[in-house]
C-alpha cells in the first residue's frame, strides 16, 4: 500500500429528501487509478451518491474527501476549480440542447481550459469518433440524435478534458450489446492509458465485470458488500447473490403488488 490518501473517501455520508432516507451512512474509498463499479436496485440512491460527491446535492452529514481535502470546507471558487478534475456522464445525458453536438463535447475545453474553438473542435471530433460517431454528427443538435447517440455524446463530453476522476452513470444503458462493449473498452482505456480514477454505476453485470477493479453494492442506503470481480461470484451474501442472478425472490423486496 502507498501512503497517498485515497482519491475519494466517504465516511458516514447521509442524505434524506424530506422523510425519505436515501443514503444512510455511506463508507467508500476509491484509490488513485482504481475503477469501482456501484451496483444496486433502481431507486436505491446510486445517482444521488455521485451527485453528493460532486457537491451538486448537499449531503446532510458525513465526510467526503477528494485527494485528502474535505470538500465541505471549500469556498465556491475552490469548488469550481476542483470541478476541473471531474468528468461526469449524467444518467439522462444532460446535453445542452441549445448547442450543437461538437460544442457540447468541446464545452469543457473551451470554457474551463480556455482553448480556442478550432483546436477544441478537432479534439471534440476525435472524441466523437472514439464513441463511434462520425464528424457529420458534430453539426447536429442533441434533439436530432437517438437516445443511444445522445448517451455516447454525453460520454464523449465527460472524457473530453481527460479529467482525473470520471463518473459514469449507466454508460451502457440504452446501447446495443456491441456498442455497449465498445464503450466498456473505452472506459477501460481511460483508466489504463490516462490513469483516470473512475466510479461507475451500472445494471449491466457483463459491463461491470469488464470495467471494474472492485464492485460495491448499495442497498438500504449503505454499501452492504464490496469485493473484486472474482469474489462476486463466490460470495455468499444473499443480497448480492439475488442481485447478480436477477431473482425476484430473496432478501431484496421490490415494492410491487402481485
Amino acid at each position: 500500500m502507498n501512503s497517498k490518501p485515497p482519491k475519494i473517501r466517504m465516511r458516514g455520508v447521509c442524505k434524506a429528501f424530506g422523510p425519505k432516507v436515501v443514503l444512510d451512512g455511506i463508507d467508500l474509498d476509491v484509490a488513485d487509478g482504481e475503477s469501482v463499479v456501484i451496483i444496486g436496485g433502481s431507486g436505491t440512491g446510486k445517482s444521488v451518491l455521485l451527485k453528493c460527491i460532486l457537491g451538486i446535492i448537499q449531503p446532510d452529514s458525513g465526510l467526503i474527501e477528494i485527494d485528502g481535502v474535505d470538500v465541505s470546507e471549500l469556498s465556491s471558487a475552490e469548488r469550481d476549480e476542483l470541478m476541473g478534475k471531474f468528468g461526469m456522464l449524467f444518467q439522462g445525458g444532460a446535453l445542452f440542447d441549445s448547442l450543437p453536438v461538437w460544442e457540447n463535447v468541446a464545452f469543457g475545453l473551451i470554457q474551463a481550459r480556455g482553448m480556442d474553438r478550432d483546436a477544441a473542435r478537432t479534439i471534440a471530433l476525435n472524441k466523437l469518433a472514439a464513441v463511434g460517431l462520425g464528424p457529420e454528427v458534430g453539426a447536429l443538435v442533441p434533439a436530432e440524435l437517438s437516445g443511444g447517440m445522445q448517451k455516447r455524446v454525453a460520454l464523449a463530453r465527460a472524457i473530453a478534458t481527460e479529467p482525473e476522476i470520471i463518473f459514469f452513470d449507466e454508460p451502457t444503458t440504452g446501447l446495443d450489446p456491441i456498442m455497449g462493449d465498445v464503450i466498456n473498452d473505452l472506459i477501460v482505456k481511460c483508466v489504463r492509458e490516462l490513469g483516470a480514477t473512475t466510479l461507475s454505476i451500472t445494471h449491466d453485470l457483463a459491463s461491470a465485470r469488464k470495467i471494474a477493479h472492485r464492485i460495491a453494492m448499495l442497498h438500504g442506503g449503505k454499501i452492504i458488500w464490496q469485493g473484486s470481480v472474482a469474489e462476486i461470484d463466490q460470495t455468499d451474501n444473499p443480497y448480492v447473490d439475488q442481485f447478480i442472478h436477477g431473482r425476484a425472490e430473496g432478501p431484496i423486496q421490490m415494492q410491487v403488488s402481485r
Binding site: 451527485k51 460532486l54 457537491g55 451538486i56 465556491s76 469550481d80 476549480e81 470541478m83 476541473g84 471531474f86 468528468g87 461526469m88 449524467f90 444518467q91 439522462g92 444532460a94 446535453l95 445542452f96 440542447d97 464545452f107 469543457g108 470554457q111 474551463a112 463530453r157 478534458t161
Partner: peptide, 17 residues
C-alpha cells in the same frame, strides 16, 4: 428545462458556474 434535465448541474461539472 435545463434544471430538470440536469443541464444546470452539467454546467457545474464542466467548471462553469
Amino acid at each position: 428545462t435545463m434544471r430538470v434535465t440536469d443541464q444546470v448541474d452539467a454546467l457545474t461539472t464542466l467548471s462553469t458556474n
